[in-house]
Write a protein that binds this DNA or RNA. Structure first.
Lengths: 143, 143
DNA sequence: CTCAAATTTGGTGTCTATCCAAATATCATG
DNA sequence: CATGATATTTGGATAGACACCAAATTTGAG
């Protein structure tokens, strides 16, 4: 059902979804705006978009929360970030540096590449940015 | 003089410059268009842009050639591609796979990161995509 | 000199990303 | 419950990236 290839959303939009996920799955527009340093109106529009696309449920004037689709996709986004970050740390970057550089890159890393790196690293359970989740859908490359 | 940070040009525009470089530094509009699968008018516009920005010299109706600035920058672009590709091959990707995935990514990899990876790999001289150049400006991280 | 091929121009369109000002809604409190 | 401060949304705008088409122009071979 997944079929995630990693490019379903533009990089920037993905960041919005990831923030919602990392902040617990439920957020107010203003929180998102502050977290991502954009104006509230920008946040409204992007969140409304993500809702229209089925990743979030949006209750106007109250906030958003992840849908099942949004949860699944943000699990991928978080895992991608952490795998990329971990991969970069293999080249000598500190956790902070790796995390920072990963933010530039991750939006352009395919799901297939994430899986390959993940497998190559032996399906690690921890990254400098937090734990790495593995489940059937998320990491079909063999656990 | 360089001060290349890797984000001087949008990813796609960089591809045009890289193609010119890899094809010998001199090209006709149609060659570029075919190489990158865009219409001739698109190629004209992008090449004119790169000329306006000082990377190419454009003789209308005749073609483009790299300027000194364009040569320097495309040296970086080619090196970035090869370093990224080599880095990916470290995770088990074949040369072709690495090259392909590198194309998605490289436009979002900072110069600083290229240098870090390059150093971490021991300033390699060869990648699956061809030789890796090192010179003072290109790889100031210590040869 | 003429005409086909190459190139450029000018006009459009889509998508991403963002902002501001104005309108609207919510909610705590008096 | 009325109201105002705060949060949110709307509507309108801008800007950059990327790309196309049709029409005009230029080049160069014959």
């Amino acid at each position: 059902m997944a079929e995630i290839d990693g490019f379903e959303l533009p990089a920037r939009k993905s960041e919005f979804l990831k923030v919602v996920s990392l902040c617990g799955g439920t957020m107010r527009t203003n929180e998102v705006a502050h977290e991502l340093n954009v104006s509230p109106s920008t946040a409204t529009k992007v969140l409304a978009d993500l809702a229209r696309e089925g990743y979030l449920e949006h209750t106007p004037y109250h906030g958003v929360c992840l849908t099942a689709k949004g949860e699944e996709y943000s699990r991928f986004l978080v895992r991608r970030h952490r795998i990329v970050s971990l991969a970069l740390s293999r080249f000598g970057l500190s956790p902070d540096e790796a995390c920072q550089e990963a933010k530039n890159l991750e939006g352009h890393v395919s799901r297939a590449l994430v899986d390959r790196i993940c497998a190559s690293l032996g399906h690690p359970v921890m990254s400098g940015c937090g734990p790495i989740e593995h489940d059937g859908d998320c990491c079909p490359c063999g656990r």
